[in-house]
Amino acid sequence: MKAYLFPGQGSQFLGMGKNLYKNSHFAKQLFQLADDVLKFRITSIMFDGTMNILKKTKYTQLSIYIYSVIKAKILNNFEPDMVAGNSLGEFSALAAINVFSFEDGLILVNQRASVMQEICESTNGGMAAVLGLEDSIIEDICNKDRGIIVPSNYNGPKQLVISGEKEALKRVCFSLEKKGAKKIFILPVHGAFHSPIMDPAVKKFENFINKIPFKDSKCPIYQNVTAKPVMKSNDIKKNLVKQLTSPVRWKQSIENMIYNGATSFIEIGPRNILKGLVKKIIENFSKKI
């Protein structure tokens, strides 16, 4: 069974999409459609922009979504048995399997990025990746801190991202170093994504997403919030809203996909950044069974 995976922020690169634009007439049409829908030239930022512009949340999310969906649309024999997307990648996955249209996905991602950017600019949050410790140790230290700090991305075995207030982040990172973390590095993001700090964005995004028509999925999508297969449109919508403040259960999603029959994983995005994580998850899962 084939599982298709779609990456989130961090997979962008300068010039992304230019080759797709040049080599596929259908891809060219979709890139032009993106410019028309957004009412600005996102293609100029993707093809010829600077990294300083591309790394801004608003442009990063749109660029990765556009690239990933177009790449899926021009693939021969794109018939997934199941899909999953890492954070933003969930939107790419849903557009690729036609739960909503490419155009509606653009509007959704643009709105999501805008409300997230707004929160980032009004709060003092950050994120850090922690390597080499069991999830339970990290969860316990986060729970004991007096500030807002939570696990936000269960990326793989002994690889967990934490998210929250910068002062709490410093305290928790110091405690995790003393607990024996092999490596801790602050992520180059401007906010505390997938944490309670994003709560003010929830209602705005919920009101917006309810205006967008969704279809039931033709194959299971393993959503970040539950890590379980979902196909009903209303459930998919609710999970997309919850994703703003809930952790990305990527490790658990891949494990559940394996358990339910996935035999191959194909990544669709600007760069193969999920490949290494999936390999480690598979190796670790094999030891459990």
Rank of each mutant, 00 (worst) to 15 (best):
Y222W: 07
W250F: 15
L244D: 02
N224Q: 07
K203T: 12
R146W: 11
E134A: 15
S114C: 03
R249C: 01
I149K: 03
K237F: 09
S175L: 14
L187S: 10
K280G: 01
K28D: 07
T245Q: 04
G147T: 12
K275D: 12
K179L: 05
V230C: 07
G132H: 03
N210G: 10
L133N: 00
G17H: 00
G164A: 10
G10I: 08
K280D: 15
A95P: 06
A181Y: 03
K71Y: 14
D216W: 02
S87Y: 05
S286V: 12
V225R: 00
A201I: 11
L88R: 03
M116P: 09
G261V: 10
M257E: 04
Q117Y: 13
I186D: 01
T245P: 06
R171C: 10
N110V: 07
M1V: 14
D36T: 13
L30Q: 01
H25K: 15
E206T: 09
N110Q: 11
M16F: 06
I254S: 00
Q9D: 07
H25Q: 15
R171D: 06
L133Q: 05
L62V: 13
F78I: 12
L94K: 01
E165R: 06
L14K: 13
T60P: 00
I53W: 09
I268W: 03
R146C: 14
L277S: 09
L5T: 13
P213I: 06
K39F: 11
D36K: 14
K280A: 12
M16T: 14
A27V: 07
E103G: 07
S175Q: 15
L169H: 06
K73W: 05
P200T: 10
L88V: 00
S233Q: 15
K288P: 08
F265P: 03
Q243D: 12
Q159P: 01
N19F: 10
L187F: 13
R146F: 15
G156I: 01
F185V: 00
G49S: 09
Q9W: 04
T123L: 04
P229I: 08
Q61R: 01
K58Y: 15
N19K: 14
A129R: 01
Y4D: 04
A27K: 04
L5I: 15
T245Y: 05
A93S: 05
I45C: 01
N143P: 08
G156H: 06
A181P: 09
L169I: 10
F285Y: 14
A84R: 05
V37D: 06
E79K: 11
W250R: 07
I74T: 11
M127R: 07
I149T: 00
A262I: 03
F102Y: 09
I66H: 02
V69P: 05
L75A: 13
M16H: 02
V115A: 03
T123C: 08
V248N: 01
T50R: 10
Q32S: 14
V115C: 08
I42H: 00
D81G: 09
Y222F: 15
D36A: 12
E255Q: 13
D199K: 14
K2H: 13
K237N: 09
I184T: 03
A95Y: 08
L277P: 01
N224E: 11
S11I: 03
P270Q: 10
D135M: 12
F100D: 04
I254V: 14
P229T: 07
N256V: 14
